[in-house]
Design a protein around this nucleic acid. Structure first.
Ligand code: FES
Ligand code: FES
Lengths: 157, 157
DNA sequence: AAAAAGAGTACCAAAAAGGTCCAGTTTCCG
DNA sequence: CGGAAACTGGACCTTTTTGGTACTCTTTTT
C-alpha cells in the first residue's frame, strides 16, 4: 500500500524520543515504553531490531538499556526503514533479482522501476532522525523534486 | 513494506502496453491479457479501477474496450497508484485525520511525516506513463533531492 | 545469589493482498 | 429481433503480511 509499517512508525517515534532527551546512556525499554505510551513488548521488539542493525547500542544486564549508536543527524529514515522492514524495494521484482524480466522481453520496466525506487529511497535518505525529533518541524525549502523528466528537464528551483 | 501492490505493478504494465501500441480505440481486456500474459480476471479488475478513476475510458458492448483517457505524458505514476490502492499516505496516521497527535503532545511527528509523504508523492508525480513505456529508459539527471534540510541546518558531513 | 535488563524466538489473531467467479448490462451486428 | 462480445459490480476465498504478545534464556550489576 506504499505505506510504512507500524513497526517503522513506532521505531521513528522511539528513536526520536531518545534523540530528544539527554543523550546519556541507559535508556531502558521500559523507560521508552512509558514515555511513548507504547506497549513494552513492542518497544522491546523494535529496539532489538534496531540494535541488531547497528542503529542502537544495547547494554545488557541490570542498569543496562539502549543508546543511539550514532548522533541523530547521522541516522536516516531510509536506514530505520531498512532495519525494521528490510531493504527498500518499491516493487516485488526489485527485491529478488530473478523476475522473468531478464529473459522475457514482455516486461521491460525493470530499469524504470529501479529509477523510481532510487528516487524514493533518495527522498528517505534525505531525512535524518534529527529532522524528525519531536517538536522540530521539518521544512522543505521549495520543492526540487524534478525526477524522471527524462533528459533535460531540470526546472531548477 | 513500503512497496507498491501487484495491482499497481500490473496496472503500470497494462497502461504502458496501451500507451506503447497504437493509440486507437478499442483495446479489449482480453487483448491486454494476451499481450501482457496476465490472467484475464486480473486485467479486468484493474481496468475497471482505472476506468473508474478516470485514467481509462471504457466502451461497452461488442466492439468495446478500453482506451487511455489522456495522452501518456499526462498520466503520472502517483495517479496510477492512487487509483489502484487509494491515496498515497506513507503512514497510517496520514490517512485518517483523527490520530491522537492532535490532542496528545506525545507524538508530534505528524507534520514531519507529512513532509516526507509529500516528498515521496512528489517523486511519484514526477514520473509519467510515457516515461515508463516499455523499452523507454527513464533517466534521472543527477540527484537533486535536497529534502528536509530544515532551514539552515545543513551540518555538512 | 537475586534482580534488572536485553536476546532470541515462537506464537497467534487480524488485516491486507492476490486472485477468481459470476450474475447483470450495454452495444454492435447480422 | 436475438445473440455474442465486452464492460460493471460485487462476492468470495486463500495466502501472506502485520501487529502484537509471551516465554525462556543469558548477561550484568549489586
Ligand atoms: S518481470 Fe520483474 S520487473 Fe519486469
Ligand atoms: S499520532 Fe498520528 S501522527 Fe502522531
Amino acid at each position: 500500500m506504499l505505506r510504512v509499517t507500524k513497526l517503522t512508525d513506532y521505531g521513528v517515534l522511539l528513536l526520536s524520543q531518545m534523540a530528544d532527551g539527554d543523550e546519556r546512556e541507559a535508556c531502558t525499554a521500559r523507560d521508552l515504553a512509558d514515555s511513548t505510551r507504547l506497549p513494552l513488548p513492542m518497544v522491546s521488539k523494535i529496539a532489538k531490531l534496531l540494535a541488531h542493525h547497528g542503529l542502537l547500542l544495547s547494554h545488557r544486564g541490570a542498569k543496562g538499556g539502549y543508546s543511539l549508536a550514532r548522533p541523530a543527524h547521522k541516522i536516516t529514515l531510509a536506514e530505520i526503514i531498512a532495519a525494521l522492514e528490510g531493504p527498500i524495494a518499491i516493487t516485488d521484482c526489485l527485491g529478488h533479482d530473478d523476475c522473468r524480466c531478464e529473459a522475457d522481453p514482455i516486461c521491460s520496466m525493470r530499469g524504470n522501476w529501479d529509477v523510481v525506487n532510487h528516487a524514493v529511497r533518495g527522498a528517505l535518505e534525505g531525512v535524518t532522525l534529527e529532522d524528525m525529533v519531536a517538536g522540530k518541524k521539518v521544512t522543505v525549502p521549495s520543492f526540487p523534486l524534478a525526477l524522471a523528466s527524462s533528459g533535460s528537464e531540470r526546472s531548477g528551483k
